[in-house]
Design a protein around this nucleic acid. Structure first.
Lengths: 338, 338
DNA sequence: TTGTAGGCGTTATCAT
DNA sequence: ATGATAACGCCTACAA
């Protein structure tokens, strides 16, 4: 509650001097600096954010826009938040999570009010209205994920494509030829979600290159849907020997359903879960072999990207692809003999 | 980027008039109001947050402080965030998620800088340094959860105690007499976590009142720990016929482990999971009978509480207990005959 | 090295 | 009904 003015008076210096010591913006004699610091301590001074922001024209705040409509974000969301927040702090920024309903107005309000210096957008869709809005404004932004055509923007994304490719190659090497692809499907979201779309593309392409027949299925993002899917698999896809799973929330239920139908994982059917955490993977029986989502790195690099946009808008755009890392599990085996 | 001054010039009025129409703070002739609104539209005016905050002495921002150290927040955290954010928006506030590492300095920095009008603190511990810090400052705050002695503070909490009591009564009515209590245990957190502690108290008390022997166990908050726990139960607690589970993340693993040891749920062993979501409950086989966490209501009421503190500090302190609601499941049955 | 003073964009009081 | 203008707290040329 104390102002610089009060600190200045108490220390017997001018308000400018106080500013200098608070911000280290100019040299001050050790003697007077001490006096100022003492006064600050005594008065419990703390710099007022609004005043400072107004004068400097920046707030040192970054907004991490997350989609409030999502029922369940990936299990790694928290890891991502935390690593992003830590990184921001390290670099002198404060990161705040900004829930947005995907409304244009919310983004305009956020950026035009000058409340934040930059925006980090997560859960980016192939066509994303939020990105369009962001492009219209002047606030620097960076994407976690990519739109269909992400040229001209800063982004950091998980390399789902290569993960899927790797997974398929692994399965093929184990003799699998009938490999299904299963992704989530909630309110059309997954049709447009960049990562899922690219994973699917990669699946189709890799299968084609391997001369294998591709089959893609969708399944709600919950265990109940996973259980139902198991029945569908048994009935309609009895020949499948492996699954590329892009739907971690359905995984436990799927495994349960399969077991109930007498399908043994991995003896009868192998499963590789893409972009999951070990935590989620272990909720299923058997523990899922998976490709771990690089959530922490994503958060760190995302923050670095937006800060670079803020401070050095003329540098080349940061555009980084991060691979998943292989995770332990017991859901993959050699293809069964037929 | 346009300022009020520019809008005023363009509309041929004074800056004060613009302020009146922007805030609706005074009557303005329809004629001039239109002129002003047109000018605003043409210039794409948007009120500058820092300027406004400085002049008004308030920011209309509420910080939701969440513990960044947590490995996994409850599965209902997102629901809670979202409902809180929605409620805040409804009432003209912006809610921002503020990750904090439980450091005093972070809280001081946040509150003393005047960046937010109020703070909502979640994951409150029985002894919580953050609360002490908050008490020292002048920023209004409210708790989601309660400290040991929460008198004199505003709080909204889940009534775990009554949930546990209800659960035990249900089990007793089904003939159970050997009922275990299992909670999480991560880095001492659960020793101090208000909800868990009160749930445990309630368990001990209710068991005593029923003349039953109480046994409490802890288990890491993940499926692997749950699997290990199953082995421990089989070995050391073969007589138990029911479990009160306060550890949703371990649940799927526990169920899996039990099945592998030949323990049938619910025929041999009943499980009631307290404070879970249906989503998490369905990840286990069988789907867990549970007491649903009132996450959405908690978010809404928490925001209402802090806003009341901000605007009417003289009103009696909001202190609200919200019960869990019974959730469907298949993990409870009559006690087995011995 | 330190002080003076104008300005950042809004709000709100007090005139007109 | 509208306009002038003094805050709000801080930053930063520019002066001294």
């Amino acid at each position: 509650m104390a102002t610089m003015q009060q600190v200045a008076e108490r220390a017997g210096v001018s308000i400018a001097t106080v500013s200098f010591v608070v911000n280290g913006s100019k040299k001050v004699l050790p003697h007077t600096r001490e006096r100022v610091e003492a006064a600050m301590r005594e008065l419990g001074y703390s710099r007022n954010h609004a005043g400072s922001a107004l004068a400097r024209g920046r707030t040192d705040i970054i907004a991490l826009l997350y989609p409030a409509f999502e029922r369940n974000l990936s299990g790694t969301a928290m890891t991502f938040f935390t690593s992003a927040a830590d990184r921001a702090r390290e670099r002198g920024y404060t990161l705040v999570l900004w829930p947005a309903h995907n409304e244009a107005a919310e983004i305009t309000e956020l950026t035009a009010s000058g409340l934040v210096d930059g925006v980090l957008l997560m859960e980016v869709q192939l066509e994303d209205g939020r990105v369009d809005r962001l492009k219209e404004g002047r606030t620097p932004f960076a994407l976690i994920g990519r739109t269909q055509d992400p040229e001209g923007m800063a982004w950091v994304d998980v390399d789902f494509a290569s993960s899927v490719e790797t997974a398929i190659e692994e399965l093929v090497a184990l003799g699998h030829t009938s490999i299904l692809y299963i992704s989530g499907a909630t309110e059309k979201r997954f049709v447009a979600h960049g990562g899922v779309a690219r994973a699917r593309e990669s699946y189709l392409q890799t299968m084609a290159q391997s001369g294998l027949t591709a089959t893609t299925l969708t399944c709600g993002e919950n265990s109940a849907a996973g259980r139902l899917l198991a029945a569908e698999l048994v009935e309609h896809h009895p020949d499948a020997t492996a699954i590329i799973l892009m739907n971690e929330h359905a995984a436990p239920g799927l495994a349960i359903g399969l077991a109930q139908h007498g399908v043994r994982v991995p003896d009868d059917l192998s499963i590789i879960s893409i972009g999951t955490s070990a935590h989620m993977a272990s909720m299923a029986e058997p523990v899922l072999t998976h490709m771990d989502s690089p959530a922490a790195e994503l958060g760190r690099l995302g923050v670095d990207a937006i800060i670079e946009r803020i401070n050095e808008p003329d540098r080349p755009l940061p555009q980084t692809l991060i691979p998943c890392t292989p995770g332990e599990g017991a859901s993959v085996a050699r293809a069964p003999r037929r």
